[in-house]
């Protein structure tokens, strides 16, 4: 049971209120029909599978309902930071524990 900081509610809340929603910063192509088969395949299926800090999406499904982004260390399972959907992909925080 992790604790997750919802950037919309601005509260750190129990994981039970949240749902994982896959890797972050994989934008749907503006014109999918203009993509090659390979580009579309990569968009659909190819993921980072990071060991360590991972940019991923969560949804505060039993709360404010918003999707947001997070950096989570897949080794320690710790959230390094969370930020609102649509915000630029941040650099990795210097130190674990920042929220």
């Amino acid at each position: 049971m992790l604790l997750i900081h919802c950037p919309y509610c601005d509260e750190t809340l129990p994981e039970a209120e949240f749902a994982y929603a896959g890797e972050a910063h994989i934008a749907r192509p503006a014109d999918p029909m203009a993509t090659s088969d390979e580009e579309w395949r990569d968009f659909l299926f190819i993921r980072t599978n990071a060991k360590g800090p991972h940019y991923e999406r969560w949804r505060h499904v039993h709360g404010c309902g918003r999707f947001f982004n997070a950096i989570r260390d897949t080794v320690s399972d710790r959230f390094l930071m969370t930020y609102k959907a649509g915000e630029a992909r941040p650099a990795l925080p210097a130190k674990e524990g920042a929220e």
Partner: peptide, 10 residues
Amino acid sequence: GVRTLFDSAT
């Protein structure tokens, strides 16, 4: 007031 969980119900 907030939306949250009670048991498995939103």
